[in-house]
Design a protein around this nucleic acid. Structure first.
Length: 286
DNA sequence: AACGCGTGGAC
DNA sequence: TGTCCAAGCGT
């Protein structure tokens, strides 16, 4: 399968973006922080938060020493603030179980809060050079097109897909292969308007060869937003992020007009540990 | 297995 | 303009 791997790795050598979590200067902790922030969030939005985060908390121990609410506040508007809580919890676990050093083993990584198969594989590969199939949304899309000849992968990872990804991991420099496929998916083999004209593997891409047939699988799940609890949670979290200390209930009440939904959202935030209540006032957690 | 979970840029 | 979507995870 070097027909696919070689041109793709050569393309990466020439077109890779210079990102602060790549290269020799990046510590395993920096790689880990970047992977948490990049879960469902675009690179451009992560960059400034990543920089200030590592300046404030250059090691897992530094973050573990801070209140989790400070992590949530520093997370800013990256979205999915439970990730900030989980990163804080992961830092705490790293101090407790691994002497403050990010572990290199996949099994240790995936046991950390907020670390699933993708993130464990990514950290093991990018920070430690280990050999893993790194199967993220970009890689899945590239393989779906180049190998399977369909525009989009299935809604969840299939056994065949996992096997394919594992079969492609090279013996030499597996981490560069992993990041090269991801980068191609991010920059060229994009979900909408893929740039097949400049793709280094368009010549052996099954989907391209077939004339780029339109997707005809099951409908892909969209993300409702307006009027959902998620939107309400976002409003409430914005109030707390932007207020030092605690706020009166009235401040939260002003963020959403409908009582039932607002109370439900607030309760769910408390259940998640993103909000704490003390004597009728509300704040980010300690 | 399918769903809930934020945010904002691109088209 | 509204829809799509972005280096997923936990349940």
């Amino acid at each position: 399968m070097d027909a696919l791997r070689r041109p793709l790795v050569e393309w990466y050598a020439e077109h890779a973006r210079e990102l602060p979590w790549r290269g020799a200067g990046a510590t395993p902790w920096a790689v880990m922080v970047s992977e948490f922030m990049l879960q469902q969030t675009p690179v451009a939005r992560v960059l400034p938060v990543f920089a200030s985060w590592l300046e404030t908390w250059p090691t897992p121990g530094d973050l573990a020493d801070a209140p989790s609410g400070e992590a949530v506040r520093a997370w800013g508007r990256l979205g999915y603030p439970r990730r900030a809580l989980r990163l804080h919890a992961a830092a705490t676990a790293i101090v407790k179980r691994h002497g403050g050093e990010v572990p290199a083993a996949y099994d240790d990584l995936i046991a950390l809060p907020g670390v699933g198969d993708y993130t464990a594989s990514a950290i093991a590969s990018f920070a430690f050079g280990d050999s893993h199939a790194v199967l993220d949304t970009n890689v899945r899309r590239v393989l779906a097109r180049a190998v399977s000849g369909v525009e989009f992968p299935a809604s969840s990872v299939t056994r065949a897909e996992r096997g394919l990804a594992e079969s492609l991991v090279p013996d030499v420099d597996p981490a560069t292969w992993a990041i090269a496929v991801m980068e191609l998916g991010a920059l060229v083999c994009t979900a909408a308007n893929p740039k097949c004209a400049v793709c280094p593997v368009s010549g052996q891409c099954a989907w391209n060869q077939a004339g780029r047939p339109a997707y005809d699988g099951p409908p892909r799940r969209g993300q409702a937003w307006a009027g959902t609890d998620r939107q309400v949670r976002g409003r409430l979290m914005a109030v707390l992020r932007d207020s030092p200390g605690s706020v009166a209930k009235a401040r939260l009440d002003a963020a959403w007009p409908e009582d039932t939904q607002r109370e439900r959202a607030l309760k769910s935030l408390q259940a998640d540990g993103l909000v704490v209540e003390r004597q009728g006032r509300y704040a980010l957690p300690d």
